[in-house]
Design a protein around this nucleic acid. Structure first.
Length: 213
DNA sequence: CGACTGCTTTAAGTCCCACG
DNA sequence: CGTGGGACTTAAAGCAGTCG
């Protein structure tokens, strides 16, 4: 339909001779995000860019004829979709909203626009560990938690593995995936019963990441 | 009247520009 | 120079508006 050419048109304005003003780029929605186990059953991958997740979801919807014939914007949920969206039918616009619950930022440091607002706070916490792209020393407790031999790794890798543990053990609060319910092992590491996604990063940065000296 | 274009919605990350 | 705001990115289908 007309949607894509419209965007292309806007793009062309953006690409005006004044200067190749290209925003967005490889990040943004193209950033790889974690996929909840429920959604994984549909898209078939544990981690995908948001755009790919939507694409795979639409492929699944078409393959299974889940569009309402009278209004193709409407999606009729089958069992798998019902588990994901928690509704019998939805539409293409609401779908994106519902999808958000099942898309988990692999790097919770920059997980949301809320995080963006808190960016300065968090970054000040990060001063001790820099940006996450250079190796850091992790605490003995975290090394034990991750089951790694060494204590040197990328900050992003450490965070990623903590999140893998959380997802693997389904520790996300079903009512709010931004809240993590700690099991015994995680409780020992973080010293709390539950914690927010942002809180985990802050906690790790404060108590478990150390700059290489 | 038909063909085509542009806007609609939604998410979150990135980057540019304007302003203080 | 630092910060904040806003534009841009993706996907989809339908509707409204414009033009020939």
């Amino acid at each position: 339909m007309g949607g894509k050419p419209a965007l292309t048109g806007i793009l062309c304005i953006g690409c005006a001779p004044v200067g190749t003003k290209r925003r967005g780029g490889p990040g943004g929605l193209n950033k790889v995000c974690g996929v909840s186990p429920e959604l994984q059953a549909i898209v078939g991958e544990p981690a995908l860019p948001r755009t790919e997740i939507v694409k795979q979801l639409w492929a699944y919807i078409r393959k299974n004829n889940l569009q309402d014939p009278s209004n193709k914007r409407k999606i009729i949920c089958d069992d798998a979709l019902r588990i994901v969206f928690e509704t019998d039918c939805t539409d293409m616009f609401k779908m994106n909203k519902l999808l958000a619950k099942h898309i988990i930022p692999l790097d919770p440091n920059k997980g949301s626009s809320q995080a963006k607002r808190l960016k300065t706070d968090v970054e000040s916490t990060n001063e001790s560990t820099e940006s996450g792209t250079s190796p850091i020393i992790i605490s003995e407790a975290l090394a034990e938690f991750l089951g790694t031999g060494g204590r040197e790794m990328l900050q992003t890798e450490a965070i990623k593995r903590v999140w893998e543990y959380i997802k693997g053990n389904q520790l996300e609060d079903p009512l709010n995936s931004m809240v993590i319910l700690c099991d015994a092992k995680l409780r020992e590491l973080l010293k709390c019963e539950s914690i927010s996604a942002l809180g985990i990063h802050e906690m790790l940065a404060r108590n478990h990441f150390f700059r290489k000296s």
